[in-house]
Amino acid sequence: MIQSLLVGLIPGSAYALIATSLVLTYRMSGVMNFSQSVVGVFGTYVGLTIYGGGYPQWIAILVGVTVGALLSLVIGTIMTAWFDQASALIKSSVTIALMLALLAVGFRVFGDAPRSIPRLFAGASIAVAGVTFSASVLITTGLALSIGVLLSLILGFTRVGAMLRAVSERRITAELLGIPAAQLIKVVWACSGGITALAITLVAPNRPSNFLTLSLLLIPAMASALFGLFRSVPAALAGGFTLGLIEGASSYFDAVGPYRQAMPFVVILTVLLWSQRKEVWDASR
C-alpha cells in the first residue's frame, strides 16, 4: 500500500509543477492555458533528441527546458498582443486551437509512436522500514517541492513577487505606477514553459510515453490547479501531490485502477462545487 502511494509521488510532482505553471499564466494573463503541457512535451522531446545525438543528459535537459520556455514565450506574446481584452472564453478557445496546432506539429516532427525514455536517476535506492525509496522518486519529489516552494517564496516575499501580484490584480494601475507589466508577463510565460518542460521530462520515464499521452497530463494538472482556484501556488502544489498520491493508492485497488483517468473529473467537480457554491451570479455589477 505505502509502496504504491510512493509510486504516485512522481506523477504527483509533475502535476504539481504543471499546475504551478498554469496558476502563474492564469494569474498574469487571465488565460487558462490549454497549450501548457504540449509546450512542455515539445521541450522534453527536443531534449530527448539532443540526448539521442550523444550529448550529455544535463545539456539535453537544459536545451529542452529552454525550448519549452521560448515556445511558451511566443504563445504568451500572442496572447498579450492580440487577445489582451478578449473574454476568458475566447482566450481559452485560442489556447485550445494552439494546442491542437502544436500537437499536429509534434506528431509530424517526433511521430506518435511511444518512446522509451531514459530514467534520469537510475539505480540507487534506500530502504527504510521495509519501504523502498528509489533515487528517482526522492530526487523528483525534492526538485518539485523546492521549485514550488521557491516560487511561492519569490511571489510572497520579494519585491518582484509583489510587483507580479500587483500586475495580476490591476494591470493598468501597475503600469500607471511605472511597473513594466508587459515585460513581467512575458517573463512569467517563459518561466512557466520551462517549468512545464522540466516537469514532463521528470515524469516521462514512468509513463507510457507518446506525444499525446504526455500532452494529456494537462488534465490532472488542471484538476490540481483548481485546488487553489487557479490562484494559489501552494494550493496547486498540494493539489498536485494529493492527486498523485490518490492515483498511486488507486492502483493498489484493482476495482478502481482502470478508472484512474476519471479521477480528475471527480476531484475537479467536488472542488468547484464547493468553492463556487456562493457564486450565484456572473460578474459583479
Partner: peptide, 28 residues
Amino acid sequence: RQRRGLSFVEQGRTVFAGLTVEENLVIV
C-alpha cells in the same frame, strides 16, 4: 508618460488589495 513625471490617481481607491501596505509602496 509615468516616467515623464505624470502620475494619475484613479477613481475608487485602486489599492492592490492582496498586497500589504508596505508592499503597495515598495513596488513603486
